[in-house]
């Protein structure tokens, strides 16, 4: 019998393998991946149908909300992540994973990376649909740079999904909790023009992560430029990511 300690592999290796396997599984299960595009695509088409300007100079609601819906697509990745984490916990998958030498936290990180990559692919699909099928205005250069903002946004909302999973005993509770908190944030955070929000809610808007994603994404997609002061939303999203991830790590139980 061996009594020596076997050499351990570098931590990043199983994380990347796990992320790769889960990303591949997400692409293979294209029906589920496509189905999760339904909400943003439905909203986009709806606003395109009802929100076209009646007269020149009117607000083009579809063009206004387009960046927010692209952002919403990556935010919804957090919901998928939350549901999967809760399902894995209730089905005992984490228990089996915990029996391997790879720490569960590394595998959660790998799963988060895979979901983030899938969400960015989905967001780019919504972006392409809006631009090519609906003719909504998109700056080509800005669309490329938007990848960085989408990555930042998906990090924040994956961390939020992780926290929701930590607090939810069942997948349907995680789903409801995520969506019922995300949608108000979406509409307060750039989904609708600030002028039509009730006055008492307007001060809340700048502090929301949805606003921060939209603040960065809107000018990038429209004109290919960042806002005049990008530090606030970037640092805000980073702070949210770290804070939510720390809370989730504190609360997370794999069984």
């Amino acid at each position: 019998m061996l009594t020596h300690l076997p050499r351990q592999q570098p931590a990043w290796r199983p994380i990347l393998h796990f992320a790769g396997a889960m990303f591949q599984a997400g692409l293979t299960d294209w029906r589920t991946t496509a189905l999760s595009l339904f909400t943003p695509l439905f909203m986009l088409v709806l606003f395109w149908l009802i929100g076209r300007p009646a007269e020149p100079g009117d607000l083009d609601l579809a063009a206004f909300i387009f960046p927010a819906i692209v952002g919403l697509t990556v935010m919804l990745g957090g919901q998928t992540l939350a549901m999967r984490l809760v399902n894995w916990r209730t089905q005992g998958v984490f228990q089996r994973l915990a029996a391997t030498p790879t720490p569960v936290g590394h595998l959660v990180l790998g799963l988060g990376l895979a979901q983030a990559a899938l969400s960015v692919v989905q967001a780019m699909s919504v972006l392409a649909f809006g631009a090519l099928a609906l003719g909504l205005p998109v700056n080509g250069l800005g669309a490329g740079a938007a990848l960085g903002v989408l990555a930042l946004g998906v990090s924040t909302f994956s961390a939020y999904g992780l926290l929701v999973a930590s607090l939810s005993p069942k997948a349907d509770i995680a789903s409801s909790l995520f969506i019922f908190t995300l949608l108000p944030m979406f509409f307060l955070g750039g989904g609708f023009p600030a002028e039509i929000l009730p006055a008492f809610l307007r001060p809340v808007s700048p502090w929301l992560p949805t606003t921060m994603v939209n603040t960065l994404l809107s000018p990038l997609l429209a004109t290919g430029t960042l806002p005049s002061d990008p530090a606030w939303p970037v640092l805000g999203l980073l702070s949210y990511t770290l804070g939510l991830a720390a809370l989730a790590a504190w609360r997370f139980r794999w069984e």
Binding site: P6, Q8, Q9, R13, P14, H17, F18, A21, L97, T100, P101, T102, L107
Partner: peptide
């Protein structure tokens, strides 16, 4: 099987 092998290094 392939993934679990990786998790065991």
């Amino acid at each position: 099987v392939l993934l679990f092998a990786r998790l065991y290094g």
